[in-house]
């Protein structure tokens, strides 16, 4: 539209800015539900904790449970596995972290980790590889008895999910 000779702000400027502001707020208010619906819905969130009874897991056994659709490895480690994991000097690790930080004290034999290779998301095989832990069949990454990466290409240790002991033999993941 043609500009008329006016000084300062006029009524049209006000209407223009007010309309634009209301329109922007309206568009954002409409866009948010359409973005929000992409997030996990209530039925997914309701399944976000998993309770596990540890008593049937014998020494040396690895059990896989599901939490939020992901495999969780629960490894009841023999004392020699724990000692081996704790004897490794930090300098030898790709992603240095002491074994003590990866377990709950008082339950040092139980290792709970997310069973997804930190390289590209495959599920590593238990009791395989050279470090008493896991071997990933996809690209050859190896993890030790603490779930720490020892041979690449994986860059990081298997992550420890949030969990708590609700009794001596029960944990709640999530």
């Amino acid at each position: 539209m043609a500009h008329t000779e006016t000084s300062g702000t006029n009524r049209r400027d006000f209407l223009y800015i007010a309309t634009g502001a209301v329109g922007t707020v309206g568009a954002a208010a409409l866009a948010w539900p359409f973005i929000s619906q992409l997030q996990p819905d209530q039925s997914v969130l309701a399944l976000s904790t998993t309770e596990v009874d540890l008593s049937p897991i014998s020494e040396g056994q690895i059990v896989t449970v599901q939490w939020r659709g992901k495999p969780i490895f629960i490894f009841n480690r023999a004392p020699k596995d724990v000692e081996a994991a704790r004897a490794v000097p930090m300098s030898q690790l790709i992603d240095p972290q002491p074994d003590q930080d990866r377990v709950k004290s008082g339950h040092d034999n139980f290792l709970v980790v997310v069973g997804i290779c930190t390289h590209l998301g495959c599920v590593p095989l238990g009791h395989q590889g050279n470090y008493d832990g896991w071997f990933c069949p996809c690209h050859g990454s190896q993890y030790d008895s603490s779930g720490r990466v020892r041979v690449g290409p994986a860059p990081l240790n298997l992550p420890v999910p949030p969990y708590t002991f609700t009794s001596d033999t029960k944990i709640v993941i999530g």
């Binding site: 539900p33 929000s36 619906q37 997030q39 819905d41 209530q42 039925s43 997914v44």
Partner: peptide
């Protein structure tokens, strides 16, 4: 009903 109750803003959409 899942859309109406569980999905975020499913009722609105």
């Amino acid at each position: 009903e899942h859309i109406m109750r569980d999905v975020n803003y499913g009722w609105l959409i």
